[in-house]
Nucleic acid binder design. Sequence first.
DNA 1: CATGAATGAGATTTCATTCAT
DNA 2: TATGAATGAAATCTCATTCAT
Lengths: 213, 213, 213, 213
Amino acid sequence: MNKKREVESSVKDESLIAKRRSQMIRGAVTLFKQKGFHRTTTREIAKAAGFSIGTLYEYIRTKEDVLYLVCDSIYDEVHTRLAALDTENASIEVLKTALQHYYGLIDDMQDEFVVMYQESKSLPKDALQYVLNKEIEMVSLFERLLKECVESGELELTPKEITLASHHLFVQGQMWAFRRWALNDFTIEEFINMQTQFLLQGMAGEKISIQGA
Amino acid sequence: MNKKREVESSVKDESLIAKRRSQMIRGAVTLFKQKGFHRTTTREIAKAAGFSIGTLYEYIRTKEDVLYLVCDSIYDEVHTRLAALDTENASIEVLKTALQHYYGLIDDMQDEFVVMYQESKSLPKDALQYVLNKEIEMVSLFERLLKECVESGELELTPKEITLASHHLFVQGQMWAFRRWALNDFTIEEFINMQTQFLLQGMAGEKISIQGA
Amino acid sequence: MNKKREVESSVKDESLIAKRRSQMIRGAVTLFKQKGFHRTTTREIAKAAGFSIGTLYEYIRTKEDVLYLVCDSIYDEVHTRLAALDTENASIEVLKTALQHYYGLIDDMQDEFVVMYQESKSLPKDALQYVLNKEIEMVSLFERLLKECVESGELELTPKEITLASHHLFVQGQMWAFRRWALNDFTIEEFINMQTQFLLQGMAGEKISIQGA
Amino acid sequence: MNKKREVESSVKDESLIAKRRSQMIRGAVTLFKQKGFHRTTTREIAKAAGFSIGTLYEYIRTKEDVLYLVCDSIYDEVHTRLAALDTENASIEVLKTALQHYYGLIDDMQDEFVVMYQESKSLPKDALQYVLNKEIEMVSLFERLLKECVESGELELTPKEITLASHHLFVQGQMWAFRRWALNDFTIEEFINMQTQFLLQGMAGEKISIQGA
DNA sequence: CATGAATGAGATTTCATTCAT
DNA sequence: TATGAATGAAATCTCATTCAT
């Protein structure tokens, strides 16, 4: 399993920690989105969170901790929202539902996802590893769903095609977050529908020879 | 057109400028890849380029100029390599060739592309705009090719599908650069083939109802 | 006399003050020995003392107060232990007893003495003065004993020799606390004996011409 | 041997490094003497040295480096001045000359010695070790001189007495630096004479029983 | 043209102290 | 009395940029 990395706090009261960190994360996401992690100062984060620089450091140890908390909270949300889903005995129907939830999630937390993908490289090594593992977990979920569809005969894919397709599904999520400026005409429902359509067709259709016409 | 943003230099000799900047870009890409733009110091860039910090500043005005030069040089290369292609009267065949060249290019300049996509947000506004326009040009190229395939009857796509598909083509290029760690098993040829296959199938196949089985 | 400098406390109960301060001093000495006064935080002192930072500040006003209390408590102990001694009508025998008690004291409170000598410069001016006066009192005690030995004819020393010798006696005490690492082979008794021997001989012997052999 | 610990500098010119560091040491000693190492800020050091904070950090890496440079420069001076001495085939005469040079040195560099002994505990571990080794070298020098005097029959001392006496010689040096306030009446020559007198007598005289009168 | 020493604004982080509970 | 969360002044250190040589 991917063990959660603890961020030390000198404050004891757990519920207060949760509250302050949530203020902190909210402020940080906004700032990181605007100016990026490196151009944002810890003082700005504190201010945006609504408390003093000294208080900020009662709840974290380094600036990188803030970034980690942002990433971690995203995956907590992902976990909460996808856990609600029953993905046992996958079918294309289940896959579609999963995508709907996943893309919906990204739509709701667009800023957070953009920040995470843009800035995660600035995390300390162990935190980066933790976040990457979370990403792998996501991709693996899609992989499992696809594999089960193949096993049930609903899809016909080679193992390599499964791998590639699961990355597609994942990357299309990022695309919705990152390329919104180019996708203004699309509603999220439209996007989900078209992407699912493309994808299933790409996978399910009769193979077209890519050599001949 | 997207007017090239000039970077000022106090040196007059154009060929010397070209030479020094190319040393500079080479060094900078390596460093930016390793540690990111913000964690790389101008001293390090100068050293990696093989000259002193004083000399570095004879050829640029700010650190951000270095990043801009990196991005700009990538699009110069893109331009050079895709200009060789005859994309008039597009067909699926032409589209496939274009993809082959584009993905091949990304494969050759993986580090450069990663750096560009990761760090371009640190560019000053005008430089960022310039780079984004270059990106739009790329997407537009795919869009035009797809549109011509539709016009010639080789593909059947709505305008919105064309838009989305062209972004797909573009994003899959980024995917090859960014997710290489997950795609170790794939050769670039295999990747190109499978992606093209998926894509064309997704677009060309009989529409599958995504509601029913 | 050297008027005791009061440390303010918001707590009224004198016996509670005494108890808390003694906990505080015990913890502080250990910490100051390990890391020095400046590298020790008030939080650490509170923790080592067994109560909260808030409580610490109920019994002192500033961090320097803690250092002062440490120094003061040392001289309280010195006072208590040397007061037991009858040093009226001094003789060499009395001097020897005094040294035995003084060096024995230093042996018992090594950490405290080291801390005091190393850190007392960080005391606020008035507190430093108070501590220096205590030191002068100590030296004066030795001076008086020596003077009385001279008066009684047991020793033959000029006034300047008395001054110097009394500082010697004092400094040798510090030496036992500070250079323990180099004096591992010596027991405290051995040390006392040899030092007394050296000293009395140095003072009592026939003068050797330091010019000729 | 005690390998010199290098302090890194980003400046290349060795003679400039020497010059700037000497300015730095001069300023630092004054400040450390007045306020101690911890109460002195790096900005103050830079100012006292006559340059900016940025420049200071071109010649050191951490504040502790300044302290190390101070200590190191003292021992360089000690080395230079004592190396002039011929201490082969020691005699009491040679010992006396050595003391004269050593105490004279301390007299000349009183501030430096006080700072070194008061603040060296703040050095990083390896630097502290280096400085302690230098101290041991000094004590060993005295030890050797005493041993040779014993071998030549000029002094009669047990090995333990030699150890203790060499520490005495060393500590009396510190005493001259630290207790100057109490030794105002003494000239350095007087001090040297009296100390040598005391010492040699303490060592050379007929042993007095310290039990009886 | 090339060099590299000098600069100082600005960033992160610590910690003594306060005060509401 | 006891607690510990909040505060912000102040300290160390970095690094883009300049400019005299």
